[in-house]
């Protein structure tokens, strides 16, 4: 744009989304006693954390980061998490459902739903209760899944952390109602209005550091149906019969637990190429997440307290 005052007073859509998210994050800090930011080390968490740093600059983050760890995350995620939190001076709290982990909970023997329920949902509920948090930020987006399309930015949860989709507070303008009763809490989703494409474009524009697994390279993978499952020597016992690992040029569109997250065939090894690939994608990113498959699984899990 070369001329005219008006064009100077236009925000790009990413900057408009950024401003909205910062507004939401600041409202929560103003109205809640003890907020915490859930940090899953993935790309959406990385954007959320970046927005939070912007919101309070030049002050440090006024809340801690909480990673509900299942013990099944990729080792690259742990390395990235620890190095990045140290670099930016964030206070990181890591919590696990130690009880279930001690009993050997895993998706192969107990099923994906039970494993997620114990390690993620229960792990999260326990950690929130232990910390006494009345508000927890999460990086969920409405474009991810159809039940999420109906969720509010301020998502009310009862004393059991449960979501009641039929009884949600209307949200008007940019005025958020943060009033809750003792024992209730709110999950807050500042990037509700972002799409996967927005996330990648913003990471590229802002040069936000992300876990290297998002970039394509030759990796040891096992092909299972449509999915590419990363192979590690330590988890050789999780192979199914007839499966053999081989080197495949691949990357991850989303990151979850290693036994349940697939990679995709890709040559996209830098942010430009990732954005171009996202723009051309025909299938949604959730397809690589085993937990979402099944008719209502996300909605059911959310009712129980999942993000």
């Amino acid at each position: 744009m070369s001329e005219g005052n008006k064009s100077e007073h236009k925000l790009t859509q990413l900057k408009a989304l950024e401003a909205e998210s910062i507004h939401i994050i600041r409202e929560v800090v103003a109205e809640f006693r003890n907020p915490v930011m859930l940090y899953s080390v993935g790309k959406d968490s990385s954007v959320l954390l970046h927005l939070a740093r912007k919101a309070f600059y030049p002050a440090p983050l006024p809340f801690s980061l909480l990673h509900v760890d299942t013990g099944f995350k990729f080792k690259e995620m742990y390395e990235f998490r620890d190095a990045f939190c140290k670099e930016i001076g964030a206070n990181l709290i890591v919590r696990k459902n130690e009880d279930a982990i001690a009993k050997g909970m895993n998706p192969k023997d107990h099923g994906v739903a039970r494993c997620c329920g114990a390690l993620k949902t229960q792990g999260l509920l326990d950690a929130l209760e232990e910390g006494g948090y009345d508000a927890a930020f999460g990086g969920a987006r409405r474009d991810e899944e159809r039940s999420r399309a109906k969720e509010r930015v301020f998502s009310m949860r009862d004393e059991f952390g449960q979501w009641d989709p039929k009884n949600q507070r209307p949200e008007l303008w940019n005025i958020y109602n943060g009033k809750i009763h003792d024992g209730e809490s709110v999950r807050v989703f500042p990037i509700s209005n972002w799409t996967e494409m927005d996330i990648w474009s913003y990471i590229r524009e802002e040069e936000i550091p992300i876990v290297p697994l998002y970039f394509a390279k030759e990796r040891l993978m096992v092909e299972r149906g449509n999915l590419l499952i990363p192979y590690y020597e330590e988890t050789r016992d999780q192979l199914l019969e007839g499966e053999e690992p081989k080197m495949i040029m691949s990357r991850f569109r989303t990151l979850g637990c290693s036994p349940c997250t697939g990679a995709v065939h890709s040559d996209a090894s830098n942010m430009d190429e990732i954005v171009i690939e996202a723009a051309a994608a025909r299938r949604s990113e959730r397809e690589t997440r085993i937990i979402d498959h099944g008719s209502n699984s996300m909605e059911d899990k959310k009712k129980e307290g999942y993000f």
Binding site: R142, D143, E145, A149, K150, P165, T195, E299
Partner: peptide
């Protein structure tokens, strides 16, 4: 079915709530 995100909506064939959609 694409727009009715909640199981209660699909069971009852009604739309309960505002849903947000994104396109570009």
């Amino acid at each position: 079915m694409l727009t009715d995100g909640l199981s209660a909506e699909r069971e009852q064939g009604i739309t309960i709530d505002v849903a947000y959609r994104y396109f570009a």
